[in-house]
């Protein structure tokens, strides 16, 4: 069991937070997604989503581009190479741990 606890402590805490995990899952499955799509998929409020995006951007996991679509602002998010690597590593680690605990 101590090995499991060690594995658990090795998980990327930034990605392990449920909302950020959902955001990273969306962005790792596509080239980019806009704020509206992330809002609909994660079910977060605008403020919450914005805060989580800022944290992920600060960590260098995602890139945020703000632009205008006609008169309206549009925020486009994409996963960086390091973000993709971090998510894949997290997911591999988490899946292995979950499988091990089930056994």
């Amino acid at each position: 069991m101590s090995a499991d606890i060690k594995d658990l402590s090795n998980l990327d805490r930034l990605i392990h937070e449920p909302s950020r995990l959902a955001i990273m899952a969306v962005l790792s499955a596509c080239e980019s997604a806009d704020f509206t799509y992330l809002l609909n998929t994660t079910g977060l409020t605008k403020g919450n989503l914005s805060a989580h995006l800022s944290k992920l951007e600060f960590a260098g996991y995602i890139k945020i581009v703000k632009r205008f679509k006609g008169k309206y602002p549009n925020t486009l998010c994409s996963c960086t190479a390091s973000g993709r690597r971090a998510f894949q590593a997290y997911w591999k680690q988490y899946s292995a741990l979950a499988q091990h605990l089930q056994q």
Binding site: P18, S19, L21, A22, A25, V26, S28, A29, C30, A33, Y37, T41, T42, G43, L44, W91
Partner: peptide, 18 residues
């Protein structure tokens, strides 16, 4: 959002969206 999200579902839905 207290429980971990269904990551597999999110991955598939995002890929399927296109």
């Amino acid at each position: 959002m207290t429980n971990l999200p269904d990551v597999k579902r999110i991955l598939t839905e995002t890929r399927r969206y296109e």
